[in-house]
Design a protein around this nucleic acid. Structure first.
Length: 191
DNA sequence: GATAAGATTAACT
DNA sequence: GTTAATCTTATCC
């Protein structure tokens, strides 16, 4: 029996900090396994004009309103997927966007899907890491306690290791400083 | 039914 | 620094 993600049952802003340094284990369709560390996150909640959940439940955002520990995947710009970890209590539309990760094991498996890209460019962006880990809408609503995508909690980082800034790419809610990343990490996204 | 915008990326000049 | 690629979703007739 796996532990539920009680540590994610809190406001997205807190969970976004908590998720830095935690790990994701991805089992690909062929059975091979890669592991990455979360190095950059952004928080979104339903009272936030920048969040997909700000205008209530829709078919797309339904999973954001459920219990913590599930995956919210969305498709954007006609070609990219982004993945979030749902946080907060059941009934609240909150989630944390994973913006960047760094490879720990199986980097060569990530390379397979990132054609003509290497080094930090493998996973230093929200859609880059989804492409590298083969995350798409098949994983919408997936329970992160189980394969093929598992979240492994790690001890919280000290505050002095975490940098807090405004979020990237938003037209609404751009002033809210809910982006977090691990200080001096080379895999932090650009812009 | 039609339309505009989008939590982006990579390739170009 | 600028821009094309590309299609789902939400919103507005």
């Amino acid at each position: 029996m796996t532990e539920p993600f009680v540590e994610l049952n809190q406001p997205a802003e807190e969970a976004a900090r908590r998720l830095l340094g935690c790990e994701l284990e991805r089992a690909f369709d062929d059975g091979q396994v890669a592991r990455v560390r979360i190095v950059e996150t952004e928080a979104y909640d339903e009272v936030d004009p920048g969040s997909h959940s700000s205008r209530g439940r829709t078919p797309r955002t339904e999973v954001m309103f459920g219990p913590a520990g599930y995956v919210y995947v969305y498709f954007t710009y006609g070609m990219h997927y982004c993945a979030n970890v749902v946080t907060g209590p059941d009934g609240h539309g909150e989630a944390v966007l994973i913006r960047a990760v760094e490879p720990i094991d199986g980097e060569e498996l990530l390379q397979v899907r990132r054609v003509h890209q290497s080094g930090v460019d493998l996973t230093n962006g929200p859609s880059k890491f989804c492409k590298a880990l083969d995350i798409d809408k098949r994983l919408y609503g997936h329970d992160l306690r189980h394969p093929p995508l598992k979240l492994i909690m790690k001890p919280p980082l000290d505050d002095d290791q975490i940098v807090q800034t405004t979020r990237i790419g938003l037209t609404h809610g751009a002033e809210t400083p809910w982006r977090f990343y691990i200080r001096d990490n080379p895999y932090i996204s650009k812009k």
